[in-house]
Amino acid sequence: MIRVLRNQAWVLGLVGLLFALALVTKAIQPTYSASGFESLARAALPFAFATAGMAVAILVGGIDLSVASMMAVASVTAAVLMEGAGVGTSIGVVFLVLGIGLAMGAINGALIVVTKVPDIVVTLAMLYVWEGVALLILNAPGGQVAPWLQQLIRGSVLPWVPNALILAVVGVAIVWVPIRRSKLGLAIYAVGSDPLAAYRSGVNIAGTRIAAYAICGLFSAMGGLTLAMSTGIGEPIPGPYLLAAVAAAVLGGVVLGGGIGGLVGPLLAVLILRLVRQDLTLASVDPNVTTIVEGTIMVGVVMLGGILALRSRRS
């Protein structure tokens, strides 16, 4: 039990923080309602998937700077192919886009493995490549996402349980839970933790890294899809998801360098960051201050985490 607490301390801390923020929200805005939460969840959706993807790339010991660009590819592909298409076609397009995401991620991973160039450099280059691809598909915002998909992420099944939230949780869980429980999941953690030891344990390092990046690509495609679903169109210029995803993953307890963390923390972190943003808006603080606050939270938390880690090592 104690070990569970120790291992999950970070996630529990985030849950506590989320509760505190919920109370703050209620205090600032007594009339805060389920619909406010619904729009928050909708805005958080692409961030959630981008963060999940980034977290997996970091877990395997890398980082993927091309997340936002892959989202752009997914979003324009979906919008272009769905324009004027029926429900059946659009379902097919969804799966096609997810497959493209998987493929883009796998290409990233394969290039990292084959070229032996550091992850951060390869994905920096691929950031341009995928952005270029997105621009070639659609050189200005356009296309149209199937209306039923746009409706899918709006509204709530139950009060305070918006569709967008369910989609985020289900979308991440459906991919990650089976993987986490399989040997691939173990291998991802093993490679992130100690590649040499993993290799000697018989883990296929190259395969594991490619798989992890493919998962990252898949999540990015989900992010791009949900982005297009919420705006209704495709946007070839990558949004501000890269830095935000790194920030949320780190805030969520995923340690840069790999092997430590999970996906629950990062998702909570996304929610926390969005809630902070919303609270500041509700408190009619200059929206620009929001960026400062977000940056300060991030810096403060990682510095605190770093100092605590140093302390515990000393004692």
Partner: peptide, 11 residues
């Protein structure tokens, strides 16, 4: 605070 420079400078 031993924060990774990438994270620190991002923040």
């Amino acid at each position: 605070a031993n924060v990774h420079p990438l994270i620190m400078s991002l923040g």
